[in-house]
Write a protein that binds this DNA or RNA. Sequence first.
DNA 1: GGTGAAAGCACCGAGTT
DNA 2: AACTCGGTGCTTTCACC
Lengths: 159, 159
Amino acid sequence: MAKFRLDEVDHQILDILIDNTRTPFTDIAKRLNVSAGTVHVRVRKMEEAGIIVGSSLTLNYRKLGYSFIAYVGVFLQKTSQTKFVLERINEIPFVTVAHVTTGKFNIFCKIRARNTEHAKQIIFELDDIEGVYRTETMISLEESLNDKKRLMHSIFKEM
Amino acid sequence: MAKFRLDEVDHQILDILIDNTRTPFTDIAKRLNVSAGTVHVRVRKMEEAGIIVGSSLTLNYRKLGYSFIAYVGVFLQKTSQTKFVLERINEIPFVTVAHVTTGKFNIFCKIRARNTEHAKQIIFELDDIEGVYRTETMISLEESLNDKKRLMHSIFKEM
DNA sequence: GGTGAAAGCACCGAGTT
DNA sequence: AACTCGGTGCTTTCACC
């Protein structure tokens, strides 16, 4: 996959939009001392290049009653079942991400639930998938996000 | 934490904005057969209630040259060192999330890197933190995201 | 809590340097 | 590639329901 080069202006535009995608382009333009048209063109080019894939809301799931997070490692009877099991996993609501991994587990996923009882149901669903040998659950007691902005800064520094 | 009740209109507004935060409120209004003012007020109320925390861009890190993802389980010498180690972990760029967990590991984090060489450096930094006994790495071979939209639909169904 | 209209801005393309 | 400018359309408020 081709690596796309971003200049300082692109960096700064991303930096502002990562924090708030609805920041008016005229505001960004003022802050960066360029015209709003330039901001517009830059953003469009980053979209066309596939760097900016889309935009989304950051929601507080706790406030919606979903404060339980756990990671579940999945062991398979045979690794050849990976594709099949991954598809089944993706059908389970509340599984937010799944990874095929090297190391201890064959598949590794993250779940978001209301409480332990709810999580139990989800884990039982995972356990019930044909080809799953057993699962191992790690409950998150504390989540510490290192936000996107910092990751972008680290990436910019290396460019 | 109080659970905030969302009605059908709120659901649908979130549903649209989760996909694209820049969808004009006038468009949303037309689709939902309400006025643009209503959409505006609903969004503001969800922001005030802390349901909508912010908005962010979805970026393609692969295109920026960062296609390596791994999960690293961290074992501590003593659990009393958790806070200290977590703070050190959060200072390492390219660690995107860290969780204090029950189960096999004491701390569990996700890293994003350019390649295996770069990942090695990051893992060595983790290993070097005072109080870290050893780490265990699981490299992601395939990531399968179950998008936010589906999670929200599952949450709506349960409300 | 919703509406519709109106004022103020933002978007975004065309034309220019 | 970036700027200015202008038509079009979006946001946001407010008096009224």
